[in-house]
Structures are given as C-alpha cells and as structure tokens.
Design a protein around this nucleic acid. Sequence first.
DNA 1: GTCTATAAATCGATAGAC
DNA 2: GTCTATCGATTTATAGAC
Lengths: 189, 189
Amino acid sequence: MSPTPRKLEIITAASTLFKEKGYSAVTMRDIAKALGIKAASLYNHIKNKEEILTFIIISLAEEFIKGIALIKNRDSSSVEKLKQIITLHVEIASNNTNGMASLNNDWMHLKDELDHYLNLRVDYEDSFREIIKEGIEKNEFKNLNPDIMLFSVLSTLRSLYIWIPLKEDMDPSVLASNLSEVLLKGINK
Amino acid sequence: MSPTPRKLEIITAASTLFKEKGYSAVTMRDIAKALGIKAASLYNHIKNKEEILTFIIISLAEEFIKGIALIKNRDSSSVEKLKQIITLHVEIASNNTNGMASLNNDWMHLKDELDHYLNLRVDYEDSFREIIKEGIEKNEFKNLNPDIMLFSVLSTLRSLYIWIPLKEDMDPSVLASNLSEVLLKGINK
DNA sequence: GTCTATAAATCGATAGAC
DNA sequence: GTCTATCGATTTATAGAC
C-alpha cells in the first residue's frame, strides 16, 4: 500500500538527510527538525527508522526491476536496449537523486528486507549482463569480457545521482543521449 | 610522520569495518574487538575515532594528487595520459579497496581536514578535466561535453574498489588495459 | 497529530590500576 | 600496552497528556 501524504513528507525529508550524511549518521531528531516537529511525533506515522530506509530503497529497486523487465523482452537491437537502460537510469535518478544515494550506499543497513533487496539487485545485474552477452553474440558489441563492460557502464549509471544535481541546467533527454554516445563509442576519436 | 606499526594495524582493521558498514555505523568497540583488545586500549595509539578516518582518506587523496601531477606534466599524448590515469586508479584501488570505500563514502564525516580533502578533490578533478580538454583540442578525443566525459570515466574508476574484490583472479595490468579499451573506444563494435 | 518526559541501550572518551 | 570501571552525552523508541 502507498504511504499517507504525511508519511511521504517524512520519507522525503529523511532522503535529503540520508544523502548528506548517510543513514547511520542521521538521527530521528534530525528528521523531525527538518519537518518542524519533535522526534516522538514521527512514530505516529512510521514504525521505526528502518521502515523509512526500507521504503526508499525497495521502491527504487523495484522501479529498476520493472524497467529492465520491459526492456529485456522488447523486440529491439541490443544497442537500442542499452540506450533504453541508460534512459531508465537517467529518468529514475533525475526524479529522486536523494533516494538513489541510499540505494547505493545505505542498503547494508536494511534488516528485514535485506535479502529481498539483494535478490532484486542480482536479478537486475543478471538481466543487464544478458543484454550485453546478447549484443556480443549478435556482433553489435565488442567481444570483450562482459563483466568489465557491465561494470564500466553500470558504475557510471549508478553515479548519476551525484552528478545530476551539479548540472541542473542539463535536460535529462540530452544527458541520456550524450551518455549513450560516450558509453557506446567511448571518448576516443 | 608515518604511523607506528600498531597504529597501522588499527587503521587497517578500521578500514575493513568502515567498508562493510560505513564510518558512522562502526563503533570503537567494533574496531577493538577486531583486534582482540578493549576499546579503551585504542586510545593509547590514536587520539580519537576521527583521526583514523582522516588518515585513511587524506593519505589516499594525496596519493592520487601526486600521481596525476606526474602524469599531467609528462610529454605524452592525451590518450597515453588517460591510460596512465586508469592505471593509477587500478593500482591504488587494488592495494587498498577498503580505504577507497571511505574515500568515496565517508569523507563528509571529516572535521579538521574536511577543507583540505575538498581542495585535493577539486584539484584532482581540475587536472583530469584539463587533460580531457587538451585531448579534445589536439583532436584525440571526441568534441563532446568534457564534463560528461570526465563524469563517465571517473565514475567507473571511483567504483573500482567495489568490483576488484569480486574479481580477485584478474591481474591489475589486464584489468587496466581492458578498462582502457572500454573507456576509450566504448562497447559498440 | 504533536507534545513532554523518560526509559533503556549504546556511544566516544577518560582515569587510574597493573 | 591493556585492562576495568565509569562518566556524560546521545540514541531509538514508548507512555501518556493535550
């Protein structure tokens, strides 16, 4: 079920703080202060601190899983599929740069949903790797170590949340196409 | 001055824990337990928790600064310089994957040395950007947005610490050359 | 829905014995 | 150089008034 409006405000405020200092360094008092209330009042809307982190991470992870599942089964070239994955990352990261910080750096503090998250991550990486391997077989991609290609591209996409806020003037679609150019064809002329 | 052997043991043990859970989630008791001693004993060797983090981050940041300063002033092509930067990252990350995690994720918890760190980071990125711009002018690199190229390459290099431990069988020099191929020429055939 | 008050646990760090 | 003991601050979370 989706969170109440007030709960969403708490999650949004917490996301901002989690990005700045990391989950462990942010206190319930910090989150409450950002909303102009006392820490005890938060517990009228959320079960505990962990629930906030869980919502941020799992909802983002599921967004990625749904996105890549659609792309995987499309009748497109491997190059097209890769471009669509790049667009997927740019769009999700643009809409929630704060949450992306937790997805990247705070997942290890999950408790009840840690296994769920790890499964989603493995599934995502497997789908991505499959698309790369397919591209190699169809002679669209270079015949290099697929893991190195996956690592290189995915590292860049996972870092978008850091970089997007520094380039607010850049349109997401322009960013996606420039990024596709660099990742597909490299920087060498 | 360089730390005593015992101090280095403390820093090494702390690095491992900082990588697993992040600086804020690691307690002095955790670090002590990893060394088989009590938390109070740590203070015979270090001033406080912050000093451990400062040493890890500043010494790595200075390693990068020294490395890129040498590369920058060499009489090489821009492509050669970029390859040397990639090798620099692979070598430093291979030697200290744990410390690299703190450099990437825990720098905001620095106090006394925060400004020093931020200056080193800006200097490093400026040098890197200069090398890319030089390559564009000399027609070695594509005439695309230099910031996007910098971001893309640097994101991959900064994530090496996550990936290297998963591929222990891979030789650093092989990794560096494969990575150079992917980053320079892309994955597209 | 927010508050005050507070419980219970844990934190970084110090004092002083050995 | 490590220990026990402990201080003072801070943490998450709950109870109960309004």
